[in-house]
């Protein structure tokens, strides 16, 4: 007799649990304001990434086209993937001495794992995170970027 009641209790509890589940989905079905989907290409204008968002490594330049990179190469040695290459140049200073400056700060975005060690270890805070995240290109070579802008020079107070 016990198993007889158990049979009906099973049915009852089973149906009850199924209805509980249906209540959840049914509630969401009838509350379309809870939709969380973001319409990506449409919301491009309003889409704001967080300040700390790791999009790519950039080298901030001032309005006078000056950057803070001394070309010391610490970021290059700290990068675990070899995604930073620094090509140095020497210029003649007015006092006759030769001085190292940076010629090209090459950044291979395709090899970067966004660990942030270059930015953290940079002694002159020359590098920073950029918020750009749409990196898709048709040509792989376009992912190799030169971070210092053409004709840029080092900030005065850093070089001294």
């Amino acid at each position: 007799m016990n198993s007889f009641f158990q049979y009906f209790a099973d049915i009852f509890n089973g149906v009850k649990s199924l209805l509980t589940g249906m209540k959840v989905t049914g509630r969401y079905f009838f509350s379309p304001w809870e939709i969380v989907t973001q319409q990506y290409p449409e919301n491009r204008k309003t889409l704001k990434m967080y300040d700390r968002f790791k999009g790519e490594v950039i080298m901030p330049h001032t309005a006078n086209n000056e950057h803070r990179c001394t070309g010391c190469g610490i970021c290059e040695t700290n990068c675990p993937n070899g995604s930073i290459e620094i090509i140095q140049d020497k210029i003649d200073m007015p006092d006759g001495k030769k001085k190292r400056i940076i010629d090209k700060h090459i950044y291979h975005l395709s090899m970067c794992t966004f660990c942030g060690l270059c930015i953290k270890t940079c002694p002159s805070d020359a590098l920073a995170w950029g918020q750009e995240f749409e990196h898709a290109v048709f040509d792989r070579t376009k992912l190799t970027k030169i971070l210092n802008k053409p004709g840029s020079s080092i900030l005065k107070d850093i070089s001294e």
Partner: peptide, 15 residues
């Protein structure tokens, strides 16, 4: 995570 550490999956936040 993204707000604090800059990325969503692979953070490399601890040193």
């Amino acid at each position: 995570f993204e707000e604090s550490f800059g990325s969503r999956l692979l953070h490399s936040y601890y040193t």
